[in-house]
Design a protein around this nucleic acid. Structure first.
Length: 612
DNA sequence: AGCACGCCGACT
DNA sequence: GTCGGCGTGCTC
């Protein structure tokens, strides 16, 4: 970043006021403003003069400025003084009482803007609450900060200096958070990012027992007014912890002395729509820029964090309870999706009146069907998509008999519906899809949040997770299955059982051992060999039109990476770009994406896509 | 994003 | 000969 005038002021021992006291009248105050428009072309911002009557127009302020014959909202990204010269237009007004970012957060926003190929204004919008922030009424007295012991010995150095630590922790996540807050809130604030609303609410409620009104909760389910009030409280109070879902990763949050991400690696920590960002990466940059320690909690750390050089704290012993591996090879082929051994386990638990959760990868009935006569997967005759009913889910076409004439189809793989049907044959009305209140519930990863304290947890098709079409399938599978194991209440007779045809697969071996680290290190080695993240970088570009995008994209990437595609995803074309380091590609992509959007094309750039 | 300025078709 | 269509391009 270029040395700006205001930085030199700050460095001056006299300070800006003394330094300019004598020529104040001669110098006008100028601010650089980025209009709140979602386009790359205003990223550098425009200079405006601040009228003497306006106060509070400082870094991070939201202002109204004249632009191209109208007034727009904008963000102050720099301030300076200058001699009168070419007349500038004036800032029309101050829109908010509070600044929405400071210098370190602006630096992180600039990084995110480049990294996620997103206009700067869109990123600055993420620092801003849904409504314009007003200075809150003075807070009442905060309760004293209690001393909280860690669940087991934890090295103090994790909180002593700026830096990222992966805390490999299964069941005592909340206790680690409470301990870290007790060390921080006496002087500074903490920002705690949690995957889902439900977990944020649960964690905040638990922490309030010890920290009372020092715990602030914000999530996307709250109305705009309350989110804004919490945003303002966190920005202005000292000694508070802000617990929230991924969007709080960009909130200023006051004087932050600690960052925490709960269950790093879970999908909801990456925003699905533009601007896409990863809560962990944003928090890592913030921790470096503002020099605070960052803890990444979870039973299975991410290769992304390990590859970025995060420290690791691993308590002794197993990270999750014992997992039984049911080898499909033990039972004759032709056994249904639910093995006899699994059925027996469910029967045993039900005899004692226990609760069972059955995990599978997909909703619906089955991922695909196959013609009983010829063995071919059933496809839509119009668009070629695999179909699971008589109407194509992608294009709506009627799907009749198999091209070979066959009219009977069998399910391939197992989604929720098929497993419910299958288990009902043995257990009748005791079985339901997750959400129902039956004692045997069948659900997906999404339903795992609500599962806790079951007597038996089952994974029907471990291989579907392990072999998912993503370079991260192994670590993601281990993360999900460790969560499944942690959903089992501790105690005799409680168990987690996973069905697999690959009992020797490294992810399954790690699952059985209760230790993710050897697996993750082998995984990192493999990524180095294949050039996949975190050893290399991956970008997806998705487009719904445009002229010779393929050729232009290949020219643009040049020797900096390899272009795969295009694949057709619905109405869109999608490319993958892979390279050791894609910053230069991102920069060129910015201009290209801008041109395409100006031409009315919808463009999505997905950094480190999940299906890569 | 909007609001200009632009260069082509139907009206007073 | 002017009013207005909305296709590119710029906005301190």
């Amino acid at each position: 970043m270029a040395g700006r005038a205001e930085d030199r002021h700050r460095a001056s021992p006299l300070g800006p006021d003394r330094r300019h006291a004598g020529r104040r009248r001669l110098l006008s105050r100028i601010v650089q403003v980025v209009p709140d428009l979602p386009t790359f072309s205003v990223d550098d911002g425009f200079a405006y003069e601040v009228p003497d009557s306006l106060t509070g127009v400082d870094l991070g302020a939201i202002v109204r400025v004249p632009l191209g014959g109208r007034r727009v909202r904008g963000y102050v990204v720099g301030t300076r003084r200058r001699r009168p010269g070419r007349p500038l237009r004036e800032v029309a007004g101050l829109s908010a009482d509070l600044p929405v970012f400071d210098r370190p957060l602006l630096d992180v926003a600039r990084w995110a803007s480049a990294h996620y190929v997103t206009p700067l204004a869109s990123v600055l919008g993420l620092c801003t609450p849904p409504n314009l922030p007003r200075r809150p009424a003075p807070a009442g007295d905060l309760p004293p900060v209690p001393g909280v012991e860690p669940p087991r010995p934890v090295p103090d150095r994790m909180l002593a200096s700026a830096g990222t630590t992966c805390v490999v922790e299964g069941e005592a996540v909340d206790a680690v958070v409470a301990w870290a807050l007790s060390r921080t809130l006496t002087t500074r604030n903490a920002l705690v990012v949690v995957p889902t609303v439900e977990e944020a609410v649960r964690l905040a409620d638990g922490l309030r027992g010890a920290f009372g009104t020092r715990v602030l909760l914000a999530h996307s389910g709250m109305d705009a007014k309350r989110q804004t009030a919490v945003w303002a409280r966190a920005a202005t109070c000292r000694g508070v912890a802000l617990v929230g879902t991924r969007e709080v990763a960009f909130w200023p949050g006051g004087d932050i002395g600690l960052g925490i991400i709960v269950d790093d690696g879970r999908r909801p920590l990456v925003s699905p729509r533009m601007p896409t960002f990863e809560a962990r990466e944003v928090m890592r940059r913030r921790a470096m820029a503002a020099r605070f320690p960052l803890l990444l909690l979870g039973a299975v750390p991410t290769t992304a964090a390990l590859g970025a050089g995060a420290a690791v704290h691993r308590p002794p012993g197993r990270i999750w309870p014992v997992v039984e591996v049911a080898d499909r090879g033990e039972e004759p082929p032709g056994t249904g999706v639910v093995m006899e051994r699994t059925r027996a386990a469910i029967r045993g638990v039900r005899r004692r009146g226990g609760m069972v959760f059955v995990l599978t990868r997909r909703r619906g009935y089955a991922p695909a069907f196959r013609c009983v006569r010829c063995g071919e997967v059933r496809r839509c005759p119009a668009c070629g998509a695999a179909v699971t009913t008589d109407r194509c889910a992608r294009c709506g076409a009627e799907v009749g008999a198999c091209p070979c004439g066959g009219r009977r189809f069998e399910a391939l793989g197992a989604a929720v519906g098929r497993i419910v049907d299958d288990l009902r044959r043995s257990f009748g009305a005791e079985v339901a899809a997750a959400g129902g209140d039956a004692p045997i519930r069948v659900g997906t990863e999404r339903d795992l949040v609500g599962v806790g304290g079951v007597e038996l947890a089952v994974c029907i098709d471990t291989d579907a997770f392990v072999l998912a079409p993503s370079y991260r399938a192994g670590e993601d599978a281990l993360r999900i299955l460790a969560r499944l194991a942690l959903a089992v209440a501790p105690g005799r007779g409680r168990r987690c059982l996973v069905q697999t045809a690959m009992p020797r697969h490294p992810a399954v071996v790690a699952l059985r051992r209760g230790d993710p680290l050897p697996f993750l290190h082998a995984e990192l080695e493999e990524r180095r060999r294949t050039g996949m993240p975190p050893a290399g970088e991956l970008l997806a570009v998705e487009v719904d039109g445009g002229d010779d995008v393929d050729g232009k994209l290949r020219t643009l990437v040049g020797g900096d990476g390899e272009v795969l595609g295009p694949a057709t995803v619905g109405e869109r074309a999608r490319w993958l770009v892979r390279g050791a380091e894609l910053d230069a590609v991102r920069l060129r992509l910015r201009a290209f994406v801008g041109t395409l959007r100006d031409a009315g094309v919808t463009v999505r750039v997905d950094v480190d896509p999940i299906d890569g």
